[in-house]
Design a protein around this nucleic acid. Structure first.
Lengths: 210, 210
DNA sequence: GCGCTTCTAGAATATTATTCTAGATTACTC
DNA sequence: GAGTAATCTAGAATAATATTCTAGAAGCGC
């Protein structure tokens, strides 16, 4: 890290420190994903865009999948950090529940390349070999959110359901809209969607009155 | 179709009529997808399992993607047919809205291999080149459902929203649950999930009372 | 049967991911 | 600050895989 970065005559960055090289590979991969999608992002493209060699990429990430996995985790960390900040400090159920969907959709709008990538690999066919790690990572996040909800559930402000039901109800509509918006329908009004979806989730989370 | 199928001495089915060969290729592909997933289903595997030659596969489907696209459309047709039957004849809003999620989750439970496949390719990275066709196909279905909803919206029994908002709210939670269930958590109670999710969607579709 | 189209086969080719080996750089120890 | 072990980089060689191509078989209308 403290090592000098020396520009080579041919313009490539041969002497990036290791951590910077690693990060350059991920950055180049994200750019390529945004431009042409997961399927069309080849190792040779990453080599060209990042300035790293094949050997270097395999040293750092083990495989093409490994590059994607690293980017996937990095992306989740970025996204979850924002969601935590939006939800956990909330002192009312309504603010927290609405904030979850609202903040998530804001994040999608600000990071369309990362969000598209997440949806492209999610359900985990390409990253099948990393599925257990991914499930554990997500599970830890939902556990935090669930803990925040407990007092409101106990107080009857949020409907009481089995734990596995909450993420379907709280995140499903936002994911569904985000997929449509990212997948070619960016003309859909995101700001209105945030309102409508946050409202509908809040209604779905109300204890039944009858 | 009227052509005789002659078993060859080597056990392969060299003389399947064309339509049967096409269908044998799709069937073998589905089996392979169920066993090992999209990414690990190779052309060579399909050749081996279906008994067709490489040339034959490319003649019928044009590419590996083309095989998946054909299976994708076939699967959507099967699924949409059931959803139409469940929803369109409903005479109350509650029955139709709940039936959509309920029937969809029953379908997922009965066809896990097809459902997994749909989620693996959806958002359309692998099938990127077929995206317009897929969007049109889905759009036509949602238009039918939307038409069925119109009278109930007009009567104030279902909340009035912009058209693009309905599928996020009505299908999002079911999709989210289905992904979890298919992706390794089959121990989650599907019957209970159908109830809980159908209920929550119904609440989300109620016009706000305040 | 004749000519045309559709279909099948599998070898040849092209594309792409991965491995391997040699050497450069860095970090650590004395 | 020289020695040395670990880490990192490069890119050619290899392996895995998708696709194309050519020759011919089978179906089909006349």
């Amino acid at each position: 890290m403290s090592k000098l970065v020396i520009e080579q005559p041919d313009g490539s960055n041969r002497d990036l420190a290791s951590a910077e090289r690693r990060s350059a590979i991920l950055h180049a991969t994200l750019e390529l994903l945004a431009a042409r999608g997961l399927h069309q992002t080849k190792i040779a493209d990453i080599v060209r865009e990042s300035g790293a060699s094949i050997g270097s990429i395999y040293h750092h990430f083990g495989s093409r999948e490994g590059v994607f996995y690293a980017l996937y985790i990095e992306t989740f960390e970025l996204c979850f950090a924002e969601l935590r900040t939006a939800v956990l400090p909330s002192t009312t159920a309504r603010e927290g529940i609405r904030g979850l969907a609202d903040t998530y959709l804001r994040w999608v709008e600000q990071h369309p390349a990362r969000a598209t990538f997440i949806y492209d690999v999610s359900q985990g066919d390409i990253l099948r070999s990393f599925l257990p790690e991914i499930a554990a990572f997500k599970g830890a996040f939902y556990t935090e959110i669930f803990a925040w909800m407990q007092p409101f559930i106990a107080a009857g402000e949020i409907i009481a359901l089995p734990p596995w039901a909450y993420d379907a109800i709280m995140m499903g509509p936002a994911h569904e809209f985000a997929r449509r918006w990212l997948g070619g329908q960016r003309e859909l009004p995101m700001a209105a969607a945030r309102e409508i979806i946050a409202d509908s989730i809040w209604r779905a989370m109300q204890p039944a009155t009858s």
